[in-house]
Design a protein around this nucleic acid. Structure first.
Lengths: 150, 150
DNA sequence: CGCGTGGGGTTCCCTGAGGGAACTCAAGCT
DNA sequence: AGCTTGAGTTCCCTCAGGGAACCCCACGCG
């Protein structure tokens, strides 16, 4: 939780930030996504303080993003993405795409993405669910929805 | 800047977080996007501390996300999105979509998005730039790219 | 049985970032 | 000359992050 409570704002962006907006949370999600699912692995890979890692994992589990489950009769646990969490990884895909384009520098992107459906190295693109045309920030109008506070 | 330097990690997600990962930054971006472009407007709308708002705006300007420009002969300034910043708003679109789906509750989404191309209230979908098929977290393999550290 | 080991956390202290309110500064307005 | 307004600064206080040490529990082994 940040100092200010984003979760109670009437804004889906703010609410999403309440779930993964804290420092490290997106990187924890990334690591779990690529297969680093255990406490020690995460701690070693990220170099995060153990205390903060514990807090983040608990928060992500509470939020329904990760599932904590034992993988041994000893008290050993691994964290796996729920469906909710998996869909949140889409956000990481978009982040990675933007970072690749604007921040990678001459060395090029550190990671490439191969699409299962076509087998090509490619990138993600935002399209309209309805008409299939590109849908970017400049292509939309915002209107108050049913959940707006009058 | 968070305590740990994400910008120097070999990861486009971490680098992107270095730009908009600090608390409030995405909400500042959202506000500028919807037309709240001045210091006082931002401060009043977000309820953010003036000190932190100053820091965030400077950081976003330094990162090339916002452009700071005078709108009066008096020392008055407004912040506008650069192209780099506008493309970053796509991230907010995806965030809003996820928040709408998973966090909005029975009241429904607070904001609706109308797509210019088709005129419909719709949502954003992630597709492959190459083949046009849906491309989500589970549809990609990750491979080391040219910018990987050996 | 007693002991070592290793994963998965707690506890502790220290620093530094966020909140909040007050103060500043440079144009205008009157 | 004094008031107002936008756009920040400055100051203090609290709380979150970093780091390292510590703890607990279930084996595996001699």
């Amino acid at each position: 939780m940040q100092r200010t409570d984003f979760g109670s704002m009437t804004c889906s962006i703010a609410r999403t930030l309440d779930v993964i907006g804290e420092p490290w949370s997106p990187l924890v999600l990334r690591d779990v996504w690529v297969g680093l699912t255990r406490f020690e692995q995460l701690q070693a890979d990220l170099g995060i303080s153990r205390k903060v890692l514990t807090e983040r994992l608990n928060h992500l589990v509470d939020a329904g993003i990760l599932d904590r489950r034992p993988y041994d009769r000893r008290p050993r646990y691994e964290y796996v993405l729920t469906e909710k969490g998996t869909e949140l990884v889409d956000l990481l895909l978009v982040m990675a795409h933007w970072g690749d384009k604007w921040l990678a520098g001459p060395a090029g992107p550190p990671v490439l993405h191969r699409h299962h459906a076509c087998g090509e190295i490619t990138t993600v693109d935002l399209r309209c669910t309805h008409c299939g045309e590109p849908m970017h920030a400049t292509d939309v109008d915002l209107l108050p929805g049913p959940g707006a506070t009058s």
